[in-house]
Amino acid sequence: CHSECLGNCSQPDDPTKCVACRNFYLDGRCVETCPPPYYHFQDWRCVNFSFCQDLHHKCKNSRRQGCHQYVIHNNKCIPECPSGYTMNSSNLLCTPCLGPCPKVCHLLEGEKTIDSVTSAQELRGCTVINGSLIINIRGGNNLAAELEANLGLIEEISGYLKIRRSYALVSLSFFRKLRLIRGETLEIGNYSFYALDNQNLRQLWDWSKHNLTITQGKLFFHYNPKLCLSEIHKMEEVSGTKGRQERNDIALKTNGDQASCENELLKFSYIRTSFDKILLRWEPYWPPDFRDLLGFMLFYKEAPYQNVTEFDGQDACGSNSWTVVDIDPPLRSNDPKSQNHPGWLMRGLKPWTQYAIFVKTLVTFSDERRTYGAKSDIIYVQTDATNPSVPLDPISVSNSSSQIILKWKPPSDPNGNITHYLVFWERQAEDSELFELDYCLKGLKLPSRTWSPPFESEDSQKHNQSEYEDSAGECCSCPKTDSQILKELEESSFRKTFEDYLHNVVFVPRKT
């Protein structure tokens, strides 16, 4: 048989008469490798580009789960590009990614509803959504962080984005990388972005840091009482949809009607710091009717980097990364020049730590249904340095008659930039024990000054392991946590139920 035959053949030295091919099969003959313009397919066939392209389009058009959109890589027609490569849609070739590779997620039936953290986790790592997304989240724990972890990498949506009755959302900033909504599939009414009845939605994105392009379709905003109209108009300008909307697409009466839409800028007039305090004062603000001013709200939190936005980490279910302080308005003076500047002394802060701070007014709604208010920009203030805590785990070892090696770990709280350490030492008198000992005694162990690591005695271990207080009263049991108490109650309830079950099964009433 021919060298490319495997198993047997019907005619000697003829690659077209093989029972099976050793390498690849091409047009009725066995070959060692697939010549151009053919590609290896499933490690035994040679196919042309049209064959591989037909497989790709067949799966793409069917949208069946589990099928493969075949691509070409290293002269092979394979189910998908290997790690580190992405497909070129024009020629199906796998090309190296520039940075992290995109991950295209194809949605069944063309859309997916995100109504819980669990459903959001199914899209973790996706960068391109081939379909439409509907966000409908009523509640949950730590929602802002969970949504950002699972949806934060999405850069492109081919269909539309719909935010509907998501009472738990305060902001859409968890879509931190969303840059493009194509609108290839539109919501009824030709809408590519749809926001309806979101009672706590206050911000779409921080438009000073976020760009969003909507290729096709219109915007729809109705019944978002805490979303200011200025935020919607800003989205029109940034996304390129200005002029597409009709009169009733953006409701003037049901958007922002319960919001404090600040239209003035508060400026800080005085800032002073110490290692654990920050004193702030800002310019006074009074609405047209000074009785509408209820006070100020001061927001602050630790910020290692200057990239904080107002609604980071917030949701309507209680999660809030900001510390909020309510401040009463100052006494009002008739003389504008003698107006008191409101302020606040922030206490209990960490030394040498940068804080993000902003302040906003708290006002009631005027009778004319106009909203007044003022808010400052987010500023960054760093507390002063102070003395560091003591170095940890000092170790001293003498390696000769004239040297001592000293080692330690950095302090747990540096409280500033540590530039150097101060080492103090003092000579001590020799131990009298060394002169009084009889060095001729056998088995004498000389006193040693070398360091030995501390260890816990058996008594201390027994005390720590004991669940009861000892007789001397030195140790006591740790208080039980809520989960331990709940577990004990469940076990007790189970024992009672099981005992009742045994009584009912074992003891049967005697027939009379």
Rank of each mutant, 00 (worst) to 15 (best):
K103P: 13
K103I: 07
I114H: 02
I114D: 02
Q121T: 03
Q121I: 04
L123F: 05
T127G: 13
V128G: 10
G131V: 01
S132L: 01
I134K: 02
G139L: 03
N141V: 14
N141W: 11
L147C: 04
E148W: 13
A149Y: 14
N150V: 01
G152C: 10
L153F: 09
E156K: 05
I157T: 01
L161W: 02
K162E: 04
K162P: 01
S166M: 15
S171F: 14
L172V: 14
F174G: 03
F175P: 04
F175K: 03
K177T: 13
G189S: 12
F193T: 05
L196F: 14
N198M: 06
Q199M: 07
W205I: 06
S208I: 06
S208Q: 08
K209S: 10
K209V: 11
T213E: 11
T213Q: 10
I214S: 09
T215M: 08
H222P: 02
N224Q: 07
L227E: 03
H233A: 05
H233S: 09
K234R: 10
T241N: 13
K242V: 13
R244M: 07
R247D: 06
N248M: 13
N248V: 12
N248E: 05
D249L: 14
A251Y: 15
T254A: 06
G256I: 03
Q258W: 05
A259F: 04
C261I: 03
E262A: 00
K267E: 03
K267M: 12
R272F: 14
L280S: 06
W286A: 03
D289T: 03
F290Q: 01
R291T: 02
L293A: 00
L293V: 02
L293M: 06
F299A: 14
Y300H: 14
K301G: 04
P304H: 15
Y305K: 02
Q306I: 03
Q306K: 08
D312M: 12
C317E: 15
N320F: 10
D326K: 12
D326N: 07
P329I: 05
D335W: 15
D335F: 14
K337N: 15
S338Q: 12
N340D: 13
H341M: 11
G343H: 13
G343C: 09
L349G: 03
K350I: 06
K350M: 08
P351H: 05
F358G: 13
K360Q: 00
L362Q: 00
E368S: 10
R370A: 15
T383F: 01
N387G: 13
P394R: 07
P394L: 08
V397A: 15
V397K: 15
N399W: 12
S400T: 08
S401E: 10
S402L: 13
S402N: 14
Q403K: 15
Q403P: 02
I405L: 14
K407F: 07
P411F: 02
P411A: 05
P411H: 05
